[in-house]
Design a binder for these strands. Structure first.
Lengths: 201, 201
DNA sequence: GACTTATCGTACTGTCCGGTACGGTACGTT
DNA sequence: AACGTACCGTACCGGACAGTACGATAAGTC
């Protein structure tokens, strides 16, 4: 294997990602990818087998990158509300990012043909956020800072409140909220969540 | 115009709906629709202009039908909690129905090309539910049965709680919850919502 | 420098599909 | 019965595109 191989792979994936996100997966031809990143169709088949192989790699790297960007600092010196506000803002911002929205659209479209891809994306994407929040809530509960019986269910609720209408609307191409709206919505959702928690379950 | 024309139109739409929902819109050829409902391609073009014309009609009739199915009885003799539970159950059930899920998938997929369709669907589908709930909450608030400042925001919150993870997962092809789970989830969400409302805003 | 192997460019194949053309046929009207 | 119109069936057009074939060329290895 040549040393340039890995670089070429990344170039192909970068080009494919950009085109898939911009136009959609079925709407992007292999020739367009080649045109964007140079090289020959043969190379593309050598590395990825077929078109779906490219998509798998795009989704894999896309989710990986998102996970690395979404860094939620769990610092016990910071008050609970503030930490949740920050988490909420990050969550809304991530959900409304073109990166995630485009992946959602593609995976939803392909889920009819490729259930495996859908499950993969679900576990690496949405369920990852759920997992992070559940762990955090669990920890807070153990420290007595929060009264919940079921951390996973509580996480589902907070995430649902955070999503609100944004996600559905963004998914259908409506404009994303501003940074200010995201902050405000996150704060309101967290407040509402904590009030509900003070008694619930 | 012949009397059989309307019948034929409906037959075409029924066939197209079934195929679009089962296979997706781009994956369904006009020949397949003809094969299913009989007739000639020419007729199809006579009635609908082009393929997208058929889709528009499918979505229009689909949302119309859903609105007529989703009948929320506002009976002031019934306690608030019970009414909200019923609403919540209906909402979850509708969201997880193949009818709505398939429309969502198609519209999301097409929203890249046809923003108008997306907005049409959004207003007739999701926003219709939001509107119904907002009106109801407003009425309850005016009667002093509920303390909220912003009925629309409150509706967004309850709907978010009701959706929980179900919608995202169903959208990606995961199995829908059972009737029991729907009932239970609706009750829990409503309970949590009402607790949050007792102080919030 | 000789050899190997990855890559390139281009052309090609097979297929699918939206949309059109057109001759024939049933239907409804007068 | 005669006429016009809607409808049917089939064939066709043009274009797009995944995937393949293959000879030419560059890059790395010895």
């Amino acid at each position: 294997m040549r040393p340039s191989t890995l670089l070429k792979r990344q170039k192909i994936i970068a080009a494919a990602t950009q085109l898939f996100f911009k136009q959609g997966y079925p709407e992007t031809s292999l020739d367009q990818i080649i045109e964007q990143c140079g090289g020959s169709k043969q190379t593309l088949y050598r590395y990825f087998g077929d078109k779906k192989g490219i998509l798998n790699e795009v989704i894999t790297q896309g989710t990986e990158e998102m996970k690395s960007v979404f860094q939620f600092q769990n610092d016990s010196d910071i008050p609970l509300t503030k930490q949740l506000n920050e988490f909420g803002y990050l969550y809304i911002k991530t959900l409304c990012s073109p990166q995630l929205l485009n992946m959602y659209r593609i995976v939803i479209t392909e889920s009819r043909r490729d259930q495996e891809l859908a499950e993969f994306f679900l576990s690496r994407g949405p369920q990852h956020f759920h997992h992070l929040l559940t762990e955090f809530l669990l920890q807070q509960a153990e420290q007595g800072k929060l009264h919940i019986n079921n951390a996973s269910l509580a996480a589902t609720r907070l995430l649902g409140l955070l999503r609100g209408d944004f996600f559905q609307q963004a998914m259908l191409g409506m404009p994303s909220p501003s940074e200010q709206e995201m902050h405000k919505s996150a704060q309101q959702a967290v407040k509402f969540f904590l009030q509900g928690c003070s008694i619930a379950d």
